[in-house]
């Protein structure tokens, strides 16, 4: 465990999570969420859970982003609140 790397990754994780729920443009929120998933995958590898990291990278950063963007193409793409 490299604690400086861990602290940096967790800091980025919190920043991404807060940015994803506060931003108004939904497309940006989806992209930030996929960045969150990628950082989360690295954190899983740091915690020696390679299998979970694999799933997080494939599903969280890959398929979920594509499905969210496809769903956004059918809507306005702006948050009301």
């Amino acid at each position: 465990m490299i604690w400086i790397l861990d602290i940096t990754l967790l800091l980025f994780l919190v920043i991404c999570a807060v940015a994803a729920i506060t931003i108004k443009d939904l497309l940006s929120a989806v992209v930030i969420l996929s960045a969150y998933s990628l950082i989360m995958a690295i954190v899983w590898v740091e915690m020696r859970a390679v299998d979970v990291a694999f799933t997080e990278a494939a599903v969280g950063a890959g398929i979920t982003t594509v499905l969210f963007i496809a769903a956004l193409a059918r809507t306005e793409g702006r948050s009301e609140d």
Partner: peptide
């Protein structure tokens, strides 16, 4: 490769299937 390698290393049917689906998508 991920599907067939799932028993002896990281990976498995779910991850391999998702990657295959991502290729088609």
């Amino acid at each position: 490769y991920v599907i067939m390698h799932g028993a002896s290393g990281p990976g498995g049917g779910f991850q391999g299937g998702v990657i295959f689906g991502a290729g088609i998508i």
